[in-house]
Amino acid sequence: MLLISSALLVAFFVSVLTIKVLLPLAPHIGLVDLPNDRKKHDGAIPLIGGISIYTGVLIASTFFVEQSQLLNLYFISSALLVFIGTMDDIYDLSVAPRMIFQGIVATLMVFGAGLYIHDFGNLFALGNVDIGRYGMIFTMLACIAAINAFNMIDGIDGLAGSMSIVTITSVAILTVLENANADILLPLILVVAIIPYLFYNVSTRNPRGKKIFMGDAGSMFMGLSVIWLLAIGTQSSDENTAVFRPVTALWIIAVPLMDMFAIMFRRIRKGVSPFKADNGHLHHICMRLGLSSRQALWAISALSITLALCGIAGEYFNTPEWLMLSLFILVFFGYSFSIQHAWKFVRALK
């Protein structure tokens, strides 16, 4: 318990210290977010939240988490994403360099760490679906998808951080439910390192002029952390035993995943790039319905928590995987339909 408490304190205070050091420096190096047609915030906001989270997790893990090649590759991969994310935050890079770095990170995850999703469980009540080596390709695509899912959902204060906390906390809960003696230190460190960012990002008690954003560095780091933990949690290996079923992972990452696929499908159908930014995300629709940014955050967080709890309950009560998958598909199509026709609902309400 003392080890866990010490690790969490270090993660928290290193994250706070990093914010305090970078706050006055960010404007001088261009690491700020300026308002435009899509971004309605006031003034130049430092994009340092992601760097502070990564630094807190790195330092705490170095001193308190058992070192391994898997952990080292996780931090190397994360460092690459934080770097390219920071460059994107400063220079507004095109899609190509971001995708290249994401591909490198996915390759490190699969071929460096040997971490890939191949066993999908008994999804169709006909025995386990195991795609073997093809899982390497699937995992690389899943890694890139998760990184972009959290990057895309980072549209209002606190949303990407809250979605990360929901998913990572769910992983920790599922791990403890399966094995009370399991090591959940890294997920806990990740959650605690996010808290200072959320205070500076959304708290009404935060001093005026001290607001920060997560930035692409942070949202991409969160996406990688989530897919990394999900791959470890759902797949058995020589060093690791799966602690929850792959179908459960869909439920605990549901909102970022559904939002990304729904919005990309809509963009492709309109004949534009799936990576072209627009105002069609779930948080935009909530605000068009009359919710404030804070109310939209609470509403979406409540939805995410509800779906995650459904996944945890399904795992705990050993609900058949085919049934969990069928219910998730129904939720996904219901969500997609609502997103596609949201503007009709908005006009009708007005």
Rank of each mutant, 00 (worst) to 15 (best):
M136F: 06
I137L: 12
I137K: 10
F138P: 00
F138V: 12
L141G: 12
L141H: 09
A142H: 04
A142V: 01
C143Y: 05
A146L: 15
A146F: 15
I147M: 13
I147N: 14
I147G: 09
I147D: 10
N148V: 03
N148H: 11
N148E: 10
A149T: 06
A149E: 08
F150Q: 03
F150H: 11
N151L: 06
M152T: 00
D154N: 11
G155C: 07
G155E: 02
I156W: 06
I156G: 12
I156A: 08
G158Y: 07
G158R: 05
L159H: 14
L159S: 12
A160H: 04
A160G: 02
S162Q: 07
S162P: 08
M163F: 14
S164M: 11
S164Q: 07
I165F: 13
V166W: 00
V166Y: 03
V166C: 01
V166R: 00
T167C: 15
I168Q: 02
I168S: 00
T169L: 14
S170L: 06
S170E: 12
V171N: 06
V171E: 03
V171I: 13
V171S: 01
V171K: 01
A172E: 02
I173M: 01
I173G: 03
L174E: 00
T175Y: 15
A180D: 10
A180E: 14
N181M: 11
A182Y: 13
L185Y: 04
P187K: 02
L188Q: 11
L188E: 13
I189Y: 10
I189A: 04
L190H: 04
V191C: 11
V192D: 01
A193C: 03
A193Y: 01
I194S: 06
I195G: 11
P196G: 04
Y197W: 14
L198Y: 00
F199N: 13
Y200D: 01
Y200I: 01
N201I: 00
N201W: 05
V202H: 08
V202P: 03
V202C: 10
R205I: 03
R205N: 11
N206H: 11
P207F: 05
P207R: 05
R208H: 13
R208M: 13
G209S: 08
K210Y: 09
K211I: 06
F213V: 04
M214H: 08
M214N: 09
A217V: 00
G218R: 02
G218V: 02
S219N: 12
S219V: 01
S219K: 07
M220R: 12
M222A: 06
G223Y: 11
L224K: 09
S225M: 09
V226M: 07
V226K: 13
I227C: 10
W228A: 03
W228Y: 15
L229R: 05
L229S: 04
A231F: 07
A231K: 02
